[in-house]
Amino acid sequence: MKLKKGFVLRVVGGESVVVPVGELSKTFHGMINLNETGAFLWKFFTEEHTVEEGVVALCAEYDVSPEQAEKDVRKFVETLQANGFAE
């Protein structure tokens, strides 16, 4: 799983937001709001990684059980794929 190129993530008013730029902004409109784990995973998946690698990274960064982390990462990846954000 890897995110498409052409999104930028920025912290605005303490909140993480993602917007499409360049070519991508012609097909995607609007912006995406991310919570803290969402922003962490977004950055993680700007490089090619598997769900399993995402779970390991999330557990290393946050105080979360492997079961919960796997649920979170799967849900995150599914949302990205369903919206066409993945390569």
Binding site: V8, R10, V12, G13, V21, G22, S25
Partner: peptide, 17 residues
């Protein structure tokens, strides 16, 4: 207004912040 080119889009987000 959110510009489409990356430099101005990023600058816009930073200005709003």
């Amino acid at each position: 207004l959110l510009p489409q080119d990356e430099a101005n889009a990023v600058a816009t987000l930073d200005l709003v912040d």
